[in-house]
Design a protein around this nucleic acid. Sequence first.
DNA 1: TGTGTAAGCAAGTAACTACTTGCATTTGGG
DNA 2: CCCAAATGCAAGTAGTTACTTGCTTACACA
Lengths: 208, 208
Amino acid sequence: MTRRHEILAAAAEVFAQHGFRGSTTRRIAEAAGVNEVTIFRQFGSKEALLREAMVHMTDSAGLVVLPEIPSDPERELTEWSESFIQHLRLRSSIIRKTMGEIEERPEMSECASSVPTEASNELCKYLVALRRQGRTAEKFDPKTAAAMLMGAIFADAMGRGMMPDVYPQPKDKAAHMYTVLLLRALGVEIGSRRTTNKQAKRTKQLSA
Amino acid sequence: MTRRHEILAAAAEVFAQHGFRGSTTRRIAEAAGVNEVTIFRQFGSKEALLREAMVHMTDSAGLVVLPEIPSDPERELTEWSESFIQHLRLRSSIIRKTMGEIEERPEMSECASSVPTEASNELCKYLVALRRQGRTAEKFDPKTAAAMLMGAIFADAMGRGMMPDVYPQPKDKAAHMYTVLLLRALGVEIGSRRTTNKQAKRTKQLSA
DNA sequence: TGTGTAAGCAAGTAACTACTTGCATTTGGG
DNA sequence: CCCAAATGCAAGTAGTTACTTGCTTACACA
């Protein structure tokens, strides 16, 4: 049991550094402090091991959840964006590797796309709720708006390290800045806030 | 001469499909219709070949240039965004592979980051010019605004294929939609246009 | 105390890797 | 026509890869 998890963790780490082809069973065994043959007895093959490691990985996402009823969009969305960018930054290596191997190992990449897909739906729902509250001044397609914010965050998490000229802002302000830009694009008043009471009323009123 | 270019093209193609480790000299030779040994006599080593192929690649960027003096921001920026997203889509495989190998082969990845860096500067300059014309209603950091648009476009180009749920909009509308969102975020009036005469006056007036 | 299961160790296999060597063939310019 | 450079072909080298086998050791549980 413990051995299995040690090996899985080591496999994920080695994969993040070297990708599939670079993840030799020797390296994984060494990283796990385990004899190479144990890997084959436990998992059968390198591919099975790495597949299980990937699944095991995506289980532990743990994103901040957005409230069903928006109250303070700037604060709530910023917190969400920050948890999202942090999530991506912590996994940037493994994400890059996985993306690089979509063509060759699509099954492995598939399970990696579940996190952003769910995140997109969550964000989308929130934006629609904001619009229902009548707090967005402009017409917009929520999927596109969500894709824009998430895309900006994603690219920042992937590219900041290798292109400092493109990302001169401080690392810990970026998520907030993208969030503010998006809110402005939707015509949401920044800094505004709404009590749950008013929210309830407004929601009722609109749905009527 | 011709042989060299054939081999370079084949190398780029194979690299886009299989990455560095997967680009065996045999595969490249086969793809180029050339004997394997020719590769070594021409380039010395696999690494030298692939490095030269990468440099040769990044030469042919060919992005649309933005006008020094903005006139019709929606049109001009949309055209630019579309040429940028098309550029990324055409090279999505090779970009993913390159990104996946930053840690192991940083020199090769470096040359790939020159295109987005220059694009960011170009876009940034345009946004600053827009602001100087007094056509942006909101305060904004041009680098962050540029990063947001480019990030959204980048993520779209990389992820649309594998996450259709996140990108339900038609492929050929995406660039325009992101562009419009950004212009709104900056408070630029959409659909507005300005004659070169007025521009000149306004620019003078502001710089005074 | 016995027993089964998981682990380690040493060695080996067949395939693939980058790269080399020696020699025959083509090709293009003087 | 001649020569030199470029290319092809066949074979080989040394290293690495995933994976296997046979045997020994440690440990948990009954």
